[in-house]
């Protein structure tokens, strides 16, 4: 894979799109020794049905902070898929909430669905749907070591909710391991092995 990975995460306002992006970026930048630049949507857009966060993850300094075309598209709402679906790279990876998003198959792209809302409900808290998605993302992409992601989850969620969120993360990760025999090609190999605590 290339030394640079571009990710877009989208969903509707309130789903925790920005927190999901923050956790992935934080895991890369703080716990996995990479450069990770996150940009989030602001204003009315951030509260609407296609709230978005983008990440550029690289082994060298990120000079251009915006996306050209995402390598990975994480989508948690139908509107988000409508709005941004077509910009995913030809060989990109789609990660989606399977009860809310019904993607059309594109040859060359890989698509991984997870019932993240239902899995979150099984934990009694729909609000951790985004963290289930982050766990699933971790499993299917293997972009960042699990422990780096866990550390980022722990450090990014409100105090007192760490255990619940880590449980949600593991739920998503476990679902990925069960349902996905082979991680997403193209971004599967961890860019850096080293994990700082």
């Amino acid at each position: 894979m290339s030394s640079k990975v571009e990710i877009r995460i989208t969903g509707f306002g309130g789903q925790g799109v920005v927190l999901a992006g923050h956790i992935i970026g934080c895991a890369c930048a703080i716990h996995a020794g990479r450069h990770a630049t996150m940009i989030q949507s602001f204003g009315p857009e951030a509260r609407g049905s296609a709230c978005s966060a983008t990440l550029v993850i690289s082994e060298s300094e990120v000079l251009y902070p915006y996306l050209r075309r995402p390598d990975i598209f994480v989508v948690m709402s139908g509107e988000g898929y409508e709005k941004y679906g077509q910009e995913l790279k030809k060989d990109g990876t789609l990660v989606f909430e399977q009860d809310l998003v019904h993607p059309t198959t594109v040859e060359g792209q890989r698509a991984f669905g997870v019932p993240s809302t239902r899995l979150a409900e099984s934990l009694g808290k729909t609000i951790v749907q985004n963290i289930v998605m982050v766990g699933f993302f971790t499993g299917v992409t293997q972009l960042v070591p699990d422990e780096a992601m866990r550390a980022a989850v722990r450090g990014s969620v409100p105090a007192g909710t760490e255990d619940l969120n880590l449980e949600a993360f593991d739920k998503g990760l476990e679902y990925a391991r069960k349902s996905v025999s082979q991680p997403a090609v193209g971004v599967a190999r961890p860019i850096l092995e080293e994990v700082s605590p």
């Binding site: 923050h22 970026g25 990770a36 630049t37 996150m38 990120v62 902070p65």
Partner: peptide, 9 residues
Amino acid sequence: ECVGHMTEK
């Protein structure tokens, strides 16, 4: 705005 709203280490 770009630097202000950009998240990095």
